[in-house]
Every structure is written in structure tokens, then in C-alpha cells.
Nucleic acid binder design. Sequence first.
DNA 1: GATTAGGCTTTG
Length: 827
Amino acid sequence: MPVHVLSEGAGPGAQVPKHLSCVSIALISTSTNFSDKTVKGKVLRKCPLVSSASGDFILKIIIQEEVSPPDASPQNPSINVILFGAIAKDFDGAVNQGDVVVAAGFTVGKSPTVQKDKLHPFNLLLRGDSACIYVSPPPPPVSRSSPAAKRISSLSAEVSRKTKVPKYTYVGLGDLTAGSVVNVYGVVVFFKQPFKTRGTDFCSSLKITDQSNEKISCSIFCEKLEDHPKIYQIGDIVRLHRVKVQLFNSSMTLVKTFGFSVMAFDGAVGGSMEPRTSSRSFSFDQEDRKRVEELRSWASDQSLLPPSPTMPLCDVQPKAYFDLTCQLLAKAPIDSTCTLLRVWDGTRSAHTLLKVIVEPDATEGPSSFPPERERLIANILAYDNHVEYARQLKPGEFLRIYNLRAIPGSSKVPGLTSSQKELDHLAFHLHGGNAFGRGIRVLPEDCPDVQEMKRVMEACPEDDEDDFSALNDSELMEIWSTPPESIEPSLLRAQIPESARGEDAETSESINTDCSSSTERRCDHDTHSVSLSEVKRSGPAGVHHVRVQLKSYEPQKLHQSLKLYCSKCSTLQEVPDDEMLAGLFSEASRDSGPFSPPDWAVSGQVDVPGNPPGSKTRTLGVHLSTEFMYKQLLFLMGSSLEETCVLSSGYQNIVPVRSSGGQLTLLHPSAPFLFRGTRTYYGCERCSEAAVREPVCAGGGRILDEKIIAEALGVVPLRFVLLMKLELRDVSDSLHVFLWRSAEEFFGVSAEDAAANQEAQDIISQSMDSLCPAGGSTAERPWMDLCLTKYQSVDDDGLNQICYQISHSTFTRPSAPPNPTVSASQR
DNA sequence: GATTAGGCTTTG
């Protein structure tokens, strides 16, 4: 049996063989032989057991080295351990999170997920007869449970020694006398996270209250952050020991004095009684418990507590100040006074969130996410004093950010694309200073608000990029301007040196000495790279990792790779060209019969400046919704395509309309239903039931966006997508694959941006130039590590065909020099 | 056994 459960202590049962020596996780690498070594660690995470159709099993766990003292820092090395086959299944039944395990007989492999999980660059692999793993449950009396249980056990130890512990007396906040040193309880009505003072300490500023209704300010000065009160929100309860009462500005205030200590508690009735404290020993008895409960219950009846400014992203309105509970996904310095924090809370704002473009190299954490996730990400700009604090944050951490400002539109933010500056994106700023409690706090994972947020995050729809069945390959072929040529195997072979003509991965890797890659896989699959010929020979569906070069791609004109996709009927269509659109506008402007404008609209006229300047100015008919302010929404009649574009720089939303059958109707099903700055929006001809209706915005001040307008007009909007066909090669074979569902992730650019701005288009063309430079031989092109999904679809004749798509892979730009062609380092 | 700050009507 490769899995042994060790007994507690030195009793009978399996023991780790004495001849094996334990090696630190930090020392794991592929350059050492580990056959007589073990690795020991505590199980931080156990992933679900994966079983394959063929009856095989895979289990992944993450273990962390345990060091003494027991309050190990989170920097202790953690490593992925992957178990294959029977050991995976047996171990799954024998281990729990928190157990300590000793692995032996493992091999070491490169971790494909190191960029993503930031864990150890290598994985431990356990498979076959030599693999062995020993499990020890955590020692008693602390059962395998939460840290809370440990606390309570140390706490009861404290209680049992209570004869030695001085009995504390607490003074009500209404009975303070200046000059005395007291112990108090209170409910927090205002707080500032610890901030650096001009002296030697950090200062926490609190205002607390109790049944006396007095509101007392407290100043806590401590050099170490961990000694400060751990306050998460208004309503939390604090217990302060040894604070001095001082009269300041004719009010009583409390200031920390020698022997000071603090505990904080959740303020919710029925909430956790676990005190937040850094003290290793503390007193806490039934009377304390009673006081906390009394304050909770008193505060719950009080309307005097200020309302909590905490809200999820979906509830944030422009201009609001609010507190946000979130998870940090990535961060990047913008300049010396500003840091970008990319966060999410699992909810989606009705407003478009500001995107900030930063160099992928400058980003800590992933530099891009699948589009579904990108839409949930709020970009926060933290200024001045918060930059220093933000530097210490790690992606993955749970945060509460206090007094964030939601700013509609945007301002002079470095890194914004020009088109973004015009639109009504929501930007989030954490202004400098600590007024209004501005600041950031890392929340522990077991905090109830974090638990609640994680439930919301888990309910988020998974990225739909793996759903390849919605659109079959023949549809992709149909819209393809140049059908792919078939490959003559003999031609292909002629290009490959005789010595290098291998059919397996080993051969392929043996001649590929360049280990750099222009792409990065972002998937979780634990699978080795295989050759393209193996991919072709494999079953009809599956995921494969390959190391390949780009032989060719289509379309060469990159604008042709932009398509319009309807998520409702899963159809893909070409973006209409300007000539065709100009024709639609011109045709509509010619036959404008009599019609009665809708009663909600005010009719008027708008002047379109002539081109060239000085030439005749044209006057066009417009209809404005009375609901919306001037410039917000304009129904425009009789304009040319060019005039519409000119006007869209001055009006936020332009809906081109015409008269038809005495009614105001949209211009044409194929024409954009909306012009917004440099962006145009199209609707699905098949799914839309368009009519000119007035948008209704619930709540004052809500900013019109394309979604609200599309909904009002009965239009099912089409989404811009990118679609390319790449021909990949390695020494074994070549293969045509699509870059489609993952194209935005691959380039780190949204298709919508690519349709609207040159910068985004440049990123795509530079990426392709780098992978497939003009001239030079194919052999010199950069290598790419890709994840390929192989799948089956049915063509129009009902025949199965095999298709491939690139998934979970991103292009990584050559760092220096910033030359779009392939750099020497990649040869 | 000094010193820090002493919320606040914010705005890149």
C-alpha cells in the first residue's frame, strides 16, 4: 500500500523508513535525485479527485512546509503534489486538509501553473510502485478543525489559571474621569486603519460608544501593526485595556498607555466570539462574553450607528463613496504616486468599468483574464500613502478598501487609451490621505464577509471558453475569407531535416534546445507536452499541451479577423464594411416619407459642419428623448455615415433612424443601432425585434449605456469577437487550429477595443509579427507553449469532423527591445 | 515612560 496513515505519537503503526532523509520544499528542483529523500508538509488544500473514463485517477494537493515557531509566516514554501493512479484514490480517502504528510518516491516536474498560482516552480509527482505517502493527523488536543478551536483551547487553559490573572474592571464611557487609566468596552462608530505618524509609531484613530451614548475618541499609538485594533467595519466591538483618559477640546478622549492591549469582535448579534488579537495569552471569561453580547444586542436596536458604507460592486453608483470587500487579482505600479489594484467581488456592475492598460511585465498576478472575468474586474487607483501599503499586498488576498470613490467618466489617468477617456466608464479611486477612514485592510479568509463573498464568486458562471460545441467548424469555415489549403504531407516532410523527423515528443524536445516561449499556458491541466502528430493520433476530444512554432495564419489582413457574434443564436457574421454602410445611410436618407414622431420625443434640428471647413453646413432632423438630457441620446435622421461619425464626437449616444410606413424605425437591421464615440454597436438581425422606444432608467442619474439602449430598442446586441486560423508546426507534423474563444485572452486585448482603437489593433498585429515575422525561415520563429482543445463537430452534411482551438494561452510580448519583429534572444 | 493625532463635509 503506497498510502500509510501514521499513528499519533510513537505508538504502533507505519513509520517513515529511517534511511530516508527529509528535504526542505525550498530545495526541490529537477537537478537533484530525490530517490532517498522525503518532503514533509501540511496539507493546505486538497483538490477534488479527478477520475478519467479509462478508470485512472489524479489528485492534486498543495502542501506547505511547517517550521517552528508554529505561527509560520505565509512565505513558507508551498508546492503542488500531484498523485496519479491508485495512490491518488487511496490517498484521497485517507487525507484531510490540515494533516501533515510525508511524500517519498516522487519525481520532480516543472509546474505548468507557476505563473498562475505563484507556488513552487516545480511539482512533486507521485506515481507507480515506488511512490509512497505517509499521513499524520494533527496532534491532539487540538482536533483537526479551525484555528478557532485552538484559540478556545488555549483560552480555557487561561481560564483555568485565572487565579493568577488580575480581574479587570470596566468603566462605562459615560463615567470617565480625566487623568485616570481605565479598561473599557465600546462599539466602533468610526475608525481609521493604522497610519504612519510623524513620530515613531502607527496611529489608529477610533470613536466608540456604549449604552451611555457618549462617543469617545481614542488614539492608539503602536510601533507594530499587529498590536493595533483589528477593526473591519463600523459596529465592531473593542475591548481596550489600560487607556488613559484625557480632556481634549472639552471632550474626554482615550489614549493608549503602558500595558495597553486591545481585542476586537464581530459586532453582529450571534456572531463569532473569537477575539481578534495578536496576544498569545489573554483573559476572556463569561463576563466578557456577556459584555460583548450586551453591546451587540444594544447596538442592534440603535439607529445611532452610522449606516455601513460597504456595498458590492453591482450596487455602486457613480460618485459614491463606499467600502469594498474584494479579492485582489493583480496589481501594477502606475507611477510613484499611484498603484493599480485589480479586484473583483463576484458581482457585476451595471456600469462599464474603467480599463487601465499597463505593461504585462509590470503586473504582479495575471496580466489578463478571460473576457467573462474581465467584465467583473474593478480597477482601483490607489494614491500616495496607499501606494506603500499596496506594495505589501499579494494577489489572492481578500481586502476591504475603505472610502473608495466611484468616478463616472474618467480623468487624466496614465495608461488609458484615448477612446476610453470619452466614455462613461466607472473608475475607482482611493484618494491619498486617511481622512474618512480611507485605507486598505487585509481580511482573513474565515471572516464572515469573505465567506459570503466567496459563495457569490463560486456562483459566477464558469468561463464559457470550453463550450466549443455552440459553433461548429463548418460555420467557421463558411465565414472564412480564404479557405485553408490542404497540406501535402510530402511537402511538409521535405522541410524537415532527415535527422529531426521524429514522431514523438522526446525527439521533438531533443532538437529543440531553445526553452524560451513566446506564450504562456494559463490552464490547470497537469499534462506533458506532446508532439502534433501525437495530438492528431489521439482520441476525438481532449486537451493537449504542445510546443510549436507558427507556420502561417489567416487572415493576413487583421481587420478581417474581427467578426460579430450573437450569444443568443450562436451565429457569427462579418462586420459590414464602410462602403456597404454608407450605402444604407444614403438609401435611408433619400426616402423619408411623412411620419408622426413618438409622443415622448421632442423634435428638432442639428447642424452638421461641412467638410472641408467653410463648405455648406447641413441641417438634419433629430428627435430627443425628454427623459434624457441634451447630448445624452439623439435619434438622428437623414445623415450620411460620415456625418453620423462626425456628430458622434459631440453627442454621447446616436441612434440612426428613418421613417418607414409613417413610423420612426431604426435605419436598417445590418446598420449599427448605436454610435458611441468611436464605438459602433450592431444588433442581431435574427434575434432582434427592433422598434424605436424610449429607454427607461430606473433611479435618477443612471447613465445610459449600450445595454440599456439595446434593451429599449428591442435589439439583441452582437459582440465583437476575434477569429483567426493558425497553422502550427513542430518537427513531427503541422496542424490547423482556430484561435477564437481564447483570442482575447491570447492577445490581452478585447475585440471591442480592437474594433474601436488603433492601439489595440497594433497589439494584435505586433504579436502576430513577432510570432511570424516576414522573411526568415520558419525554423527561426519563436516557440510557443500552447494548450490545445481537440473536439468534434458536425458539418452541414451531418459528418463528424475534428477541430482544434487554442485555449488558456496568452502571448507574452518580448520585453526588450520593444521591437515588434522577433528579437535575437528568441532565436 | 518622549513623540505621534486630535476623524469629517473628500475629488488625481
